[in-house]
């Protein structure tokens, strides 16, 4: 007769758990290797990779100086070749530009042709910067992005009200680097970190923040210390989910930034079925997954886990049915016991 030593089953079970936990950690370790997206293309580096863009040759006229941190020219007076440092704000990173939405543009589509001469004339600095609406406004081709709504939302935001015309689209969206993500990225986390970086660009950098105000930048980590699992929240939620008026389905990105005291602070506003999160990006992504990968994938393949909001209708019904069957079963059993007594 097979004898089972004491606790053998229990120990085997515990060991199994320990192993699976170890496996879990292993996967965690291999998965968290950060993906370095920073690019530091030096002059000429991989120039060939950009040549597929139709205006890359033309743009090189500018980028030979503005494409890296130094530039050189021949000084006719001193008859010497001069090497100088390029100001950081004037450096256009080729890799980032040729990935951006405006990658097929020529520099001189937006900038004056006179820039082709060197040294650049001083008055060119007075050239006005085009805003998004200058090109995208009232154009059917861009209708689905609702630029007019964005403009309206922006006008009533604190950014616009507190800073008047100093605050332009450019503060958040640099036309040289901007890449649309909310609609195109397959990875919701990528969209979140991209969108949050836009806010952090000023809100965690005093040198940019002080362009608009003399106040100190608030310490965002301290200000948000009421949030449990703060780091996870910051990775999984966009700043704008709480700091803008409810984002609508069509725009996906809120531009009506609210004053501090009107921001979402109650947990239930996100952690419930009518979660504010479900009004925007998250619902868009879930709908997309469901339509492309099927219903069950919709339950499992969900990059965001929000207690209370992820409640799945199907699983909900099943759990209620099972619980009811058990309770009714017990009740009937009890009834029979009383009757048969």
């Amino acid at each position: 007769m097979a004898k089972f030593s004491r606790f053998r089953i229990a120990w085997v079970t515990l060991l199994l758990f320990a192993f699976s936990f170890g496996f879990f950690l292993l996967v965690a370790a291999t998965n968290t290797t950060p993906v370095d997206t920073s690019v530091n293309a030096e002059k000429g580096q991989e120039n060939s990779t950009f040549s597929k863009h139709k205006n890359s040759a033309e743009n090189e006229k500018c980028l030979q100086c503005h494409g890296q941190s130094k530039y050189s020219y021949f000084n006719k007076e001193s008859k010497r070749k001069i090497i100088k440092k390029m100001y950081a704000e004037l450096i256009m990173n080729r890799s980032v530009f040729y990935e951006s939405n405006h990658r097929e543009f020529k520099c001189i589509d937006c900038h004056s042709e006179e820039y082709l001469g060197f040294p650049h004339a001083g008055n060119l600095r007075m050239e006005s910067q085009p805003n998004c609406l200058d090109c995208h406004g009232e154009d059917e081709k861009y209708a689905k992005y609702h630029f007019e709504n964005i403009e309206k939302e922006f006008q009533s935001s604190v950014h616009s009200e507190k800073h008047s015309d100093d605050f332009t689209c450019w503060m958040c969206h640099n036309a040289h680097t901007y890449l649309i993500t909310a609609r195109t990225s397959e990875n919701i986390k990528q969209t979140i970190s991209y969108d949050n970086a836009i806010c952090m660009n000023c809100h965690s950098d005093f040198s940019k923040y002080q362009l608009l105000t003399n106040r100190q930048t608030p310490n965002l980590i301290k200000k948000h210390d009421w949030l449990p699992n703060q780091k996870l929240h910051f990775q999984a939620v966009r700043c704008i989910e709480c700091h803008t008026k409810k984002i609508n389905d069509s725009t996906l990105v809120g531009h009506n930034i609210l004053p501090k005291k009107e921001a979402v602070k109650r947990c239930e506003e996100c952690h419930s079925t009518n979660s504010v999160l479900m009004a925007s990006l998250y619902r868009y992504k879930i709908k997309e997954i469901r339509s492309t990968q099927g219903f069950f994938q919709g339950i499992l393949v969900n990059d965001s886990s929000v207690i209370g909001a992820n409640r799945n209708f199907f699983l909900n019904i099943v759990s209620v049915i099972i619980a009811s069957i058990v309770i009714i079963g017990l009740f009937i059993h009890a009834l029979f016991r009383v009757i048969k007594k």
Binding site: F24, T32, L300, N302, N310
Partner: peptide, 27 residues
């Protein structure tokens, strides 16, 4: 979660999967 849960496991959000297992066990 930042220590124990990888971003994805077999293509599925590991946090969501952990959540489902936790809730199922609780049930």
């Amino acid at each position: 979660p930042e220590i124990f849960i990888p971003a994805t496991l077999l293509g599925i959000s590991a946090l969501h999967l952990t959540d489902l297992i936790h809730i199922f066990s609780g049930f």
